[in-house]
Design a protein around this nucleic acid. Structure first.
Lengths: 221, 221
DNA sequence: TAGCTAACGTACTAGTTCGTACATTAGTTG
DNA sequence: CAACTAATGTACGAACTAGTACGTTAGCTA
């Protein structure tokens, strides 16, 4: 986490723009994820910070921009994780599985991120659209998928003619749903999709599904 | 739709509890889906109705209960659709594909429902938990899946040993993601998952994926 | 160390928003 | 048709909430 954990300087508030800003972002992330954009309270964010509401407006301008900043950072984290992905030494099947597992793990470990994305979708992705940072930075995962896919299709191992974006959607949908819809799914079907005891089961299931799809025998078209 | 479309009785407001209630539900569904629970405005719902805010409280008690009622009706609609599913005459592969396509179609045709479910998840499914109606009514789709799965596994056609709930999650995740995350996905990757021109492509992709998973050759365990 | 500015705090306001007290009437029933 | 009740409308208030005007100070720099 990018959380702020400096030791509390005993007696006497030091000035530290970087720390203050980061602390606001941390708390805001939690608060927005907890209650949604409209449900989140600026006062609540301020209260749970070592600074005041004034600083939120000083550094971010307003609630809307704060939410955008929160989104930008959250997307940054997953991009970093994707960048560390090194699968060039693996055969296509293993590489895809590894990629799927990374997505699976990241989604599970960052439920707040999932919630933020859900919230942003409720609002038509208007903050992403307004953000310069998020505007045109394609996911590193896409490049990786493209390479794996090309090599797998060339060797004839992969029969499906999906492109990278579609495959990314397929993998993400399962990982995302599992975390995002955990509550309604659990309430309606009595099964906790994020139950730790079932983790390996679903992780394997995802990989099996993707590989089966990519390598299935298909009628000539 | 269960929408209210009676001809406007010219001159003179007639009393009609059923119509008023239904009209409130219609508008509330739109408003909650548009802006989320906290973003939705009770006054706005009332304004777009032929009645007043007073009636919302008269019939539903409050914003919270109104949202619950909206959810209950939305879930009712999908259950009805699932109940009309008749696949007993089909072989397991065709039956599963038909089921997947029904889910696909319903999700696409009811984006408001998807948004409501997303919103409910942001709030931890607390309204479902509090609802008697939604508490313990398993999805009819689950029963159908169970039957198809049993027949497919018995005949040796299906090699995967998933259960009905997991398969339902797999199918739903793709359908749900496509609609729910349409905006962020489009903004980030420049592809509209709900583009009508791509509809058949994704519909087929879902079926292929599920069938490939169910029928894939697997190492003995 | 004087001066300056980025960083910070307090107190307040204008506008909103859920909810309700109170008044009224359509339509039914005896 | 009198009486009654479900259904409806109006007007208002208490509480909340994003945002700001104004004042203060830490710590750097000349």
């Amino acid at each position: 986490m990018t959380s702020v954990e400096e030791p509390v300087r005993p007696g006497g508030r030091t000035r530290d723009a970087v720390r203050t800003k980061a602390e606001i972002l941390d708390v805001a992330t939690q608060e927005f994820a907890r209650a949604g954009y409209d449900g989140a309270r600026v006062d609540e964010i301020a209260a749970r910070t070592r600074t005041t509401k004034r600083m939120i407006y000083y550094y971010f301008g307003g609630k809307e921009q704060l939410f955008t900043a929160v989104l930008e950072r959250a997307y940054g984290v997953i991009r970093e994780a994707e960048q560390e992905l090194d699968v060039d030494h693996l055969d296509p099947v293993a590489a895809i599985r590894r990629l799927a597992e990374l997505t699976f793990d990241h989604h599970e470990q960052h439920p707040d991120f999932i919630r933020l994305v859900s919230i942003e979708n409720i609002h038509g992705a208007e903050h992403i659209a307004a953000s310069e940072k998020l505007g045109r930075i394609g996911s590193p995962a896409l490049d990786v998928i493209r390479r794996i896919l090309a090599s797998g299709q060339e060797s004839g191992l992969f029969t499906a003619d999906v492109d990278a974006v579609d495959l990314h959607a397929m993998i993400s949908s399962f990982c995302f749903f599992r975390v995002a819809n955990r509550h309604t799914f659990g309430a309606l079907f009595g099964r906790d999709l994020v139950d730790p005891a079932q983790r390996e089961h679903y992780r394997t299931m995802l990989g099996d599904m993707v590989i089966a799809y990519l390598t299935a025998e298909r009628a000539a078209d």
